[in-house]
Amino acid sequence: MTLHLPDADGTLRPYEPRTDPLRLSPGTPFTSRTVFSAAHVVADPYADVSPDSPAAVDWDATLAFRRHLWSHGLGVAEAMDTAQRGMGLDWAGAAELIRRSAAEARAVGGRIACGVGTDQLTGGSLAEIRAAYEEQLAVVEEAGAQAILMASRALAATATGPEDYLEVYGHLLRQATDPVVLHWLGPMFDPALEGYWGSSDLDAATEVFLEVIAAHPDKVDGVKISLLDAGREIALRRRLPRGVRCYTGDDFHYPELIAGDEQGFSHALLGIFDPLGPLAAEAVRVLDTADTAGFRALLDPSVALARHLFQAPTRFYKTGVVFLAWLAGHQSHFAMVGGLQSARSLPHLARAYELADTLGLFPDPKLAEERMRTLLALYGVNR
Rank of each mutant, 00 (worst) to 15 (best):
A132S: 13
H253Y: 08
Y247C: 04
A350Q: 10
F334P: 12
E96V: 03
G161S: 07
L24R: 10
D90N: 12
V108F: 07
D203E: 14
Q341S: 03
A176T: 01
T11S: 15
D274Y: 13
Y247E: 10
H330W: 15
P217L: 01
A105L: 08
R307F: 01
L355A: 07
A151Y: 02
P54R: 08
G222Q: 07
L97W: 12
G320F: 02
W184D: 15
G117N: 15
E256C: 03
R106V: 00
A377N: 10
G277Q: 11
S152R: 02
H171D: 11
R245P: 12
A145G: 03
A328F: 08
P347N: 10
R373K: 14
D201W: 01
M336Y: 13
G380S: 11
F362E: 05
G115L: 02
A350P: 03
S226D: 10
F252Y: 14
A297K: 15
L269F: 05
V41Y: 12
G93P: 08
G360D: 13
L63V: 00
R383V: 08
L359Q: 11
P241T: 01
D221T: 13
D229K: 11
D291R: 08
P51C: 00
D52F: 12
T34D: 13
D291F: 09
N382A: 15
R242I: 07
R174K: 14
G10C: 06
L24C: 02
Y379L: 09
V244M: 07
V303K: 06
I148F: 10
L69H: 15
H333E: 11
A154N: 06
S332A: 15
K318T: 11
L355N: 10
A102W: 01
V337E: 14
P363R: 09
S266Q: 07
V337T: 01
Q341C: 02
H267W: 03
T319N: 05
T31S: 14
G170D: 10
K224W: 06
L3T: 00
D218T: 01
T62V: 00
V49C: 02
R371Q: 09
G161H: 11
Q84K: 13
Q84M: 14
R383E: 15
G271D: 07
G109Q: 08
L227Q: 14
F362L: 02
